[in-house]
Nucleic acid binder design. Structure first.
Lengths: 154, 154
DNA sequence: CTAAATTGTTATAGCTTTCACCAAACTTAC
DNA sequence: GTAAGTTTGGTGAAAGCTATAACAATTTAG
């Protein structure tokens, strides 16, 4: 009754966890986050900062809150993010033309080059990760399923 | 040149983000995390604590580090988690039989009942979320794809 | 026995979320 | 038009969770 059978890592019963989408999503996302860190280590940006650059690059002039809403983050999270990107000379806060409360965000020239380079790296490792999927067909299916789950309400 | 076209929330160009598995995984997982919080609000446990209970329930006597490794967390994260679960009388630290450094973790009787109840709730909302998938077939495919992504190495 | 590895722990830092706050903008009523 | 209240944008402080590094006690390897 006291001799536990010395379970190895593979030997563990995950029970209901194995059937829960929430848990599996977390594990998959943790792996992606870790791989992102490896690939972009020297660039000094996190997935969150990368996402901010991506939104601002395609939608120049957006306010901080607009970017936050687009990414599903809180407004307050944007302060430190934009501060950091601005200190790296990648992003620029300009006063908004018709609203003195808000800033309009723009990529700097350096930010544009930086982002292009980062996209290359991220695309590269994304493609590598997607190799465990069955071709572009399954990847598109997966992207679609994930979008449905992200927007599902109870 | 200065009149930005007043983009609404739906009007934003996500660019490369839309094709990145990492981003879509994050969005989907954020939604699951939020829904978990709604459903289990009065229970006072997070997805992380739920996962600890699930592992200990199916693998009684595991050490803290073994649970951490199973869940992909750091050992140090387990301290606060077990502290919290122990203060709720759901989990118990017993001295390990053959290693005075480590504890063996067990669910208390109350912890067992609590977990059963929590599983009912989480299963319920998991099923609700899965309704945006095409039957059990697509769910199983998705679980499988997520497992592949979680274990893929570069 | 000595050196290396392991367990639980603490401290520290980073990131994210929540709350309250102030200034600016908007809405409504005069 | 003005003046009141309300909403919104950015910010800062506090709380939460996670990851990293270091540490003492203990176990294991050589």
């Amino acid at each position: 009754m006291q001799d536990q059978p010395k379970k190895s890592d593979q030997d563990i019963d995950f029970g209901v966890l194995d059937e829960f989408l929430g848990y599996r999503l977390r594990r998959a996302q943790m792996n992606f986050f870790a791989k992102f860190g490896e690939v972009c280590e020297d660039l000094g940006i996190s997935p969150g900062l990368f996402a901010v650059l991506a939104i601002v690059e395609r939608n120049p002039g957006l306010t901080q809150t607009a970017v936050a809403q687009a990414l599903g983050n809180d407004r307050s999270a944007m302060v430190a993010a934009v501060d950091k990107l601005e200190s790296k000379n990648l992003l620029e806060r300009r006063p908004a033309v018709n609203d003195r409360r808000s800033y309009a965000l723009f990529l700097t020239a350096e930010g544009g080059r930086f982002f292009d380079n980062a996209v290359k790296r991220v695309s590269c490792y994304e493609n590598e990760m997607a190799k465990c999927l069955d071709g572009d067909e399954e990847k598109q299916w997966l992207l679609n399923a994930l979008e449905r789950l992200a927007n599902k309400s109870l």
